[in-house]
Structure formats: C-alpha cells, structure tokens
Simulated scan of single mutants.
Amino acid sequence: MSKPSKYLLVSLPTSVSSSGHKDDALTALRTCISTDGSTFPFTIPEFKIGTLDALVGQADDLSKLANACEGVVGKVGESLRSILDGDEEKISQQKNINDKPVDQYLRSFQWNKSKYRADKSIADLVDSFQKEIAGIDNDVKAKFNQYNSVKTNLAASQRKQTGNLSTRSLISIVPPEALIRDSEYLETHLLAIPNATVKDFLKTYESLTELVVPRSATLITKDDEFTLYTVSTFKKVSPEFMHKSREKRWVPRDFKFKEGGKEEEQKEVEELGKEERKLWGEALRLGRTGYSEGAMVWVHVLALRVFVETVLRYGLPLDFVCGLVQTSDNGAKKVKTRMDSAYSYLAGNAFGRDKKGRVQKDDSAMTAEIQAGGGGEDYTAYVYYEFEIV
C-alpha cells in the first residue's frame, strides 16, 4: 500500500507578491514549494467576524474540534479495517469523501454552502460541526458494536459444534439412553478425559469418592484430544465427585438431554449467521458513510480554522490567499524550512492592523494571543496546518 499524502493548508497575505493579486500570491507560494509538493487553490468564503476575544476563543475551540474530527475519522477507518479483515484494496475503495477519492476532494474543495451556511456566525458553525461529528461517532460506534456482538455470539455457537469434546455441544453426541433420568438417588455425569490419562481414569474413578456406581464408566465417543465417558454416582456425592474430577484435570460437562435440542441449536446458528451477514452489510455502509461525512466535517473545520487564524495573524481588511499543498513527510519538512525562510518577515505583521485597517505595533501580549489561538502548536509566521486523512 502506498503511503498516504501529507497535506498542508497555507494562508498568506496577498502582499507576498509584488502585484498584491491572489493569483500572483498563489504563484509565489508554488514557487516557494518548488518540486517538493503540488499546490492547489483552496477557496475559503468570508465569515461573520466578531470581537478579537471571541476569535481567540474560537481558534482554540476549532483546534480541539479538528483533533476530535481526526480521532473520529481514524476510528471509523479502523472499524472499516476490522470488518474488511485488513484488505487494503477493499478498505481504500470505501474511503471516499462525497463520492470522490480523498485527494480529488481536497484538490477541488468548495465550501458546502447549502449544508454549512457561510452567513451563520462562526460560533454557530462550530456548534453545528461539534454536534455532527459527535453524531457520526455515536452512530458508527453503535452499529459496529451491534455487529461485533452478533459476530461473537455466532462464533461461540459455531465453536459448540466444531470444538473438541471438552467444549463443543453434546446435543448431537450423547444419546438419551446414556443418561439416568428422573432418579431420586442416582445421577449421570459426563466427563471429557484427556486421551493421555484415560487408563488412569479407568483405574481410579470408582475410588475417587464414596458412592460411585462400580463399572459405570461408559465410553460415548472420542476425538483427537479427549474421550467422553459417562459415570454414575449417588446424588449426595455429586459435588465432591465433580470437584475431585477437576483436580484430576478431567473436564465435567454440564448436559441435560432436551427433545429437539439438536434442531434448535442448528437453527440458532443459521439465524445468527443471517443476522451477522445483515449487520455486516449495514456496518459497512454506515462505516463508508461515516468516513465520508466525518472527513467532510474535518476539512470544513480546517477551512474555518484557517480563516479565523488568518484574521488573527494578518488583521483587517482581509486580503489573503489559501493554498493546499499535497506532499510527503520528507517533502513537508523541506517545504516548512523553505517557507520559514521566505516568510519569516510576516511575524512582524501578526495582529498588525486594527479592525479599521490601521497599523498597530506588535507586542508580546498579542503574540501570546496568537499562539493561544493556534491551539498550543509550534508558532509560525504564517498560517500553516499539516494533516493526513488515512
């Protein structure tokens, strides 16, 4: 499987180009990236901007929300991996965003204005994203838990029919005439004896406790590991006989004959099999949908995060360009180094204007606010976020 791409979202003021035009600023970014990645325009609409304090708080909220989205998408991806038995080709076929491959969706990203109205406040959008990603997480988790529960029950039922004589169901093995039933004093016990200790069992079972019926050991059947015997005792010594049997590593089998039990057991396996196949399909569909919707929310959260941080970094009036860089781990390190060198001067512009566009002096308090708004991440002179969607 090829290693997934590393994506970078970079926002720069248009002043990085001599003309001040967005197209030229994007060209300047491409030039800086050079051959270490491919750069695509990443269009972000303008949102309602509140107070500076509100923006700093929203930047922190968006940082946490982006991490939550990444976690949900990762969990859904792991759920798909488990249900598809780690088949990477099949897994990759399920991981689309809005019916597009991940890289295609990102390279052609457009804000979904019908679902996430840009005329809403940033706080309302954040609240909407939080509720949606929590709903996706809960729905996918519930369905996969339901599937795994039925799958576990099916496996347990199948083991009853296919395991060795110490664990498998005895309904189809033990004939009713092998048991003493409806006796006031006597009781029949079923014991799975390891094949290596059968001789010892036959020599010692009669003396294991008092009141064991002599020569009552009767062979029922055997497999590669165990031999199944019945032994009769008086009921008053049954608990002691079972306890001492376990000490000898003989395996007591709890069994009561039931008319029609074999048919019921087979029917249970068949019904669980049908339910497991039905839930497998439902879980796969919900996992595919959850991945698509969860990743879509995540990318929109990143876009909104870039917008908020752009306002905090470059001030008003807004005049910026955002680019999506598709690269690799090593490419991302080279790109970061090159951009740090090319755009370090932008640090002096952070919080450089007031709401009316007037230039303000940069100070340590403002820088602290910028870093707080960045969610505690490494500070850069420009707006920069790395992410992978796997």
Rank of each mutant, 00 (worst) to 15 (best):
F257G: 12
A283M: 09
R277M: 06
K248W: 10
L279A: 03
P252Y: 01
D254L: 06
G260F: 06
E259S: 08
F241S: 10
V251I: 15
G281W: 07
E247Y: 09
R277P: 00
K258A: 10
V269H: 05
M242S: 15
E282M: 10
G261A: 15
E265I: 11
P239Y: 13
F241Q: 09
L284C: 04
S245I: 15
W250H: 13
G273E: 12
R253L: 13
K274E: 10
F255S: 00
L286N: 12
K262Y: 03
E271V: 04
H243D: 10
W280T: 05
E259N: 12
H243F: 10
V251S: 01
E264W: 11
G273S: 11
V269S: 07
E282H: 00
L286A: 05
K274D: 14
E259A: 13
V269W: 07
E282W: 02
E247I: 12
Q266V: 07
E264K: 15
K278A: 10
E263D: 09
K262N: 12
R249M: 13
L279N: 07
S245Y: 10
R253M: 09
E268Q: 14
H243T: 14
E282V: 02
G261I: 03
E259C: 00
H243Y: 06
W280I: 08
D254M: 10
S238I: 08
K267S: 13
F255G: 01
F257P: 12
F241V: 05
G261Q: 11
F255K: 00
E264M: 08
E275K: 15
R253S: 02
K267Q: 15
L279H: 06
R285A: 09
E263S: 11
E240V: 05
L284R: 11
R253V: 07
G260M: 06
G260A: 11
E265K: 03
P252W: 01
L279G: 06
R277F: 01
D254F: 08
E265N: 04
E265T: 14
E263N: 08
E282C: 02
E270L: 10
G281C: 05
K267P: 07
P239N: 10
L286H: 07
F241C: 00
E268G: 04
R277L: 09
Q266P: 00
E271W: 04
L279Q: 04
E270D: 12
E271I: 09
E247K: 06
D254V: 12
K267W: 00
F257E: 09
E240Q: 13
P239L: 14
R249D: 15
K244Q: 05
L272W: 03
A283K: 12
F241Y: 14
S238P: 01
K248H: 07
K267F: 01
E247T: 13
K256Q: 14
K274Q: 13
W280P: 00
K274R: 11
E264A: 11
L286R: 11
